[in-house]
């Protein structure tokens, strides 16, 4: 259970929540469950992914609205793979010399 304020945790804490199924308390009354794909280090916004038979749905929760984060379970290998491939983009050329 996350105790202190979510936007202040920092990247090393946020990244520990990725690839986990989480329960997010949002505002006063809302609660959302999903697989945490990432956290924007600039705004602390959380990307939650939900897989169902109908397809993949995504919820981006603004960092300022996150009240509490609770880890429910780790992702298995298959779920990690699905999370990795959720937003695959066409390969862009590397900018390294």
């Amino acid at each position: 259970m996350m105790q202190c304020r979510w936007p202040l945790l920092g990247p090393l804490q946020w990244i520990r929540y990725t690839d986990k199924q989480v329960k997010l308390k949002v505002g006063k009354h809302e609660e959302h469950r999903g697989w945490m794909l990432t956290v924007d280090p600039v705004s602390a916004s959380v990307v939650l992914v939900d897989f169902s038979e109908a397809g993949t749905s995504v919820r981006v929760v603004m960092g300022h609205a996150v009240e509490e984060v609770e880890v429910l379970q780790d992702a298995d290998a298959e779920t990690v793979q699905r999370l990795r491939s959720a937003f695959v983009l066409p390969k862009t050329p590397s900018l390294d010399p």
Binding site: L12, W14, I15, L37, T38, V39, P41, V42, V47, L89
Partner: peptide, 24 residues
């Protein structure tokens, strides 16, 4: 060293977030 690890984590998190924005 801590800073390096933090920057590494930050870049991974941000890249994935930007990918999400692009797909939106």
């Amino acid at each position: 060293e801590q800073l390096q690890r933090e920057q590494q984590a930050r870049s991974v998190l941000r890249e994935n977030f930007l990918r999400c924005l692009v797909s939106m």
